[in-house]
Nucleic acid binder design. Sequence first.
RNA 1: GGGCGAGUAGCUCAGUACGGAUAGAGCAUCAGCCUUCUAAGCUGAGGGUCAAGGGUUCAAAUCCCUUCCCGCCCGCCA
Length: 647
Amino acid sequence: MIAQNPYELFRAECQTALAAALAKSLPDIKQPTIVLKKTPNIDYGQLATSLCFELAKQLKQKPTDLAKQLSDAVDKSGFDLIEKVEPAGAGYINFYVDFAKFSALIFTSIKELDKSYGFVKTDQPQKIIVEHTSVNPLHPIHIGQARNPTIGDTIARILQLRGHNVSRHYYIDDVGRQSSVVAYGYAKLGKPKPTEKSDHFVGKIYTVTCCIVEINRLKKLQAKAADNPEELAKANKELDEWVSISAELREKYPVLFDTLLKKISFDDDPEGEISRLNRGYEDGQPAAKELIREVSDLCLDGFRATMQRVGVTYDSWDWESDFVWTPQVSEVMTKLQSTPFIFNEKGVQQFNADKAANTLNLKAKLGLSPNNEVPPLTLVRADGTTLYTTRDIAYTIWKFRHAEKVINVIGMEQSLAQLQLKLALYALGHGKDADNLVHFAYNLVTLPGYKMSSRRGHYITFDEVLDEAVRRAYEEVTKRSPMLSEAEKHNIANFVGLGAVRYALIDVDPGKPVVFTWERVLNFETNSAPYVQYTHARACSIIRKAGREPENVDYGLLAEKLEKELILNLANFPDMFIEATEYLKPAMIADYANALADKFNTFYNAYPVLKADNPKLGDARLALTKAIQTVMRNTLNLVGVTAPEKM
RNA sequence: GGGCGAGUAGCUCAGUACGGAUAGAGCAUCAGCCUUCUAAGCUGAGGGUCAAGGGUUCAAAUCCCUUCCCGCCCGCCA
């Protein structure tokens, strides 16, 4: 017999048994909802209910008496897995599982289901779009942004294994002004061939161009604000900052800086040139299209290479510009204009998000307090070009033509924009879509001391972090396993380094800000991917050395507390997976993997497998080791980390 | 000023959706364990008014209120 979710089977038995006991013992009361929870300690059994505390009040009896009465009333004869039921503590009812039977069920299930053990399928599969990464194609992906694809990819993986039809989308934001900035610099240089990884190449052009254009703009502002002390002071301050950035950049990239400076100096009005390019791109002018798509593609090629290293893939690359060039954005505008939520201020059209929320009675539904006044959203600039969120409305509507649910993995600094977007959907009559739009927000990753800034060139690239991780892992391998061949060392260093980074980025609750330090991301000790990988390799080593399949295993021999706890951990995997998926908590998986590895290492040190006291016990422990190895591998794969047989 | 997110051991974090039994890890510190299945490991010690105060409850880190502190947002940027 096998079960997708052995614990669920036990839970169902306890539930039925207790319901029967309630009906028999307390026939006059309304049947309460039975909640069975896992116990904090194996000594309290495997499931428990605190039902008697509530009943006690209702019936004016002592909880301990009720617990005793109900425990006695449970007839376990019709059930397979219930060993005993006991009252405990101040009024709990504890259910103990028959470990021999339970173990047999779990071990058989793990062996049979193998790679699919734990991945319990939903009975309501949906078509889900997970939009993640979506880094602007202007510069390399930096470590702050790297939290996004790691979370997004894990969410996509778990939803897919849950049985949903998942599509991973990358939204290419090529329409904003910043794309015109980099394209302008790229054109000024004569569209050069990249001399390095293409996104790094584009990033340098972007930063240097930004800097030169900013200084140019601020100098003009300075001249204009000569008689306005307040504005002048502000301009001076900003100018000082950019001048110091220009010194940094000039030192780092002397040729590029001077070339760009010279070429840009031929233009009287670089800012105007950039605005014209931006306008031309939105209008779909062929020259602008060719230029901006070319530079964006260069950058995206680099992104694809980086993401391939960490096992992140995409099913669809969606260009923002496509929504502007087709009537989709203008259709949204037309429809919005027919709602009562559009108003004009100084000639620009705005969406009154707060009025929409109030009129459509959405505040309570969305968990907003009544005095939370949602700021209005500007939809179109005075020059007729659109803004990011306006285009995002059209994009979101498009996404819902291809999916029932959309999960946007986007930083929490965009919470307001995502809320305005949602309100716009309701206003447009896309209420069902809005209901199914999820903003998965995560907090920023900062460098100690200052915030990363792509425009200023202040960032650590994801590539650098990955390289450094692999380099440190190589040092570690060399230190620990000097006898290995160079090829083996490099192979191990690769999956250890990359795994460490993925794990570290997924491990922290997304709501918490992360201050980036190398020590934090590149940890090779307990509570890291390398720790779990090492533990997995250890289990593999035992299995390899055993060289045999355990036969006719007597699971009753696994009687040590630690062994039982391990079995429960294995049984718990499906529940954990379901919870992590339903509540979108990818960090849970990393924690589970670490806890399982932790317990196995304790077991490893305390109880010999191959040299167990007798062969029967050895076989039972070998079966346990194999089951743990399977589950640990499944867990690592779930978060995109290699599960090695040796390291 | 308003909104959102966070505050748990010296440091980094679990646990909070659904209140439940002694609040868990790791790092760092100290003391141990490699002629026995991979020491990227294990064992043990010390370390906590769960930001503060109040409330609800048989029961609060978890729910409610107030306050404090930190981060983010409140652009014709994305």
